[in-house]
Computed example of a mutant assay.
Amino acid sequence: MPKLKLLPLLAFSLCLAISLIRAADEPASDTSESLLKRLNWIKGPARADLKSLAEIQVPEGFVFTGAKETRQLLEAMGNPTSGSELGFLAPTSLAWFVVFEFSDVGYVKDDDKDKLNAEKLLKSIKAGTEQANQFREKMGAAPLHITGWEIPPHYNEQTHNLEWAIRAESEGHPVINYNTRLLGRKGVMEVNLVIDPEKLNTAMPAYQTVLKDYSYKAGERYAEYHQGDKLAKYGLAALITGGAAAVAVKTGLFASLIVLFKKGWKLVVLAVAAVVAWFKRLITGGRKTRETPQ
């Protein structure tokens, strides 16, 4: 199951900032701001498609871009892509962002919904993360250590949404890995929230609104399962432990970016401010955007 290498918001902003810092010596087409301008943005309020699978409502003050553009953004940040990325959503403040990625593993049965033992799951995740630290060491990244649940696993039988959030630390810095899995007929929409841990509580109302306004299209909904459809080879518990293991291996960029941020934070803050200002200009009408019809 392909996984996005999750980057904290700091990493996202920093990568864009570093590009902007270097912009003076590079052609304009190579700068992060130039990349942002070239992408097709939908500004809220509007409806946006996640290809033919689902749709979301883009709130006012937010921007969205589709599958191809999402991969371009992630690759510009030095983040390998899997081809399963479908969308990127963020407020213009860049306080947080969401990446939508679809895993076509088949219909995931929720038979184990009443057997999600948070204590056992956390123990498994901790063990897997410590093993993954061996790979992080080879990558030159600092170890990542799980400290507990921020939000224990919870499954909503009505919406077929699975959510959990894990607290961790790397080199003394707090990390939150917040995950939502939206079950569909043919697979799972993986919604990865990337945020500074200190801003999580503030962002949750807006994030929950985004999830509430998400919907699978006709024929793709969980309730529309037909006998003979492809079945996933695992259940809800494996979505949690498998997702956490992948994140533990793939967040190696976090620690190195934290160190770089410490060394040049004043310059970086100025450059990040330029990126945020560009997003705000996008919202206030500085550039026309492509909007999907209501």
Rank of each mutant, 00 (worst) to 15 (best):
N117W: 04
F102V: 05
G140L: 11
D196S: 08
A218G: 04
R181K: 13
Q227I: 14
D112Q: 07
K113T: 08
H145Y: 14
V175D: 04
K126E: 14
H226W: 11
T159G: 05
T180I: 11
Q227G: 09
L121V: 02
E224M: 04
L200A: 03
L211S: 10
G106H: 07
L193P: 00
K113F: 12
V175S: 05
A127W: 05
D229E: 08
A218W: 05
F135T: 14
F102Q: 02
V210W: 02
G187W: 06
L231H: 09
Y207K: 02
T129H: 07
K123L: 12
A141K: 02
K113Q: 15
K217E: 07
A141Y: 01
E130H: 11
G172K: 09
E119Y: 08
Q134F: 11
L193S: 00
I151A: 09
P197R: 00
L182K: 03
Y207T: 00
S170G: 12
H226F: 12
S124H: 09
N133K: 04
K113S: 13
Q131A: 14
I166S: 01
D104Y: 04
E157Y: 09
R221G: 02
N156S: 11
L182E: 05
S124Q: 13
A132H: 00
A203K: 01
Q131M: 13
Y207C: 00
E157G: 08
Y214N: 07
I166E: 00
P143W: 00
V210T: 10
L162H: 05
L162E: 01
P205A: 05
N192Q: 15
L193E: 00
Y216W: 13
D110C: 12
H145V: 15
E130C: 10
E224V: 01
L183M: 10
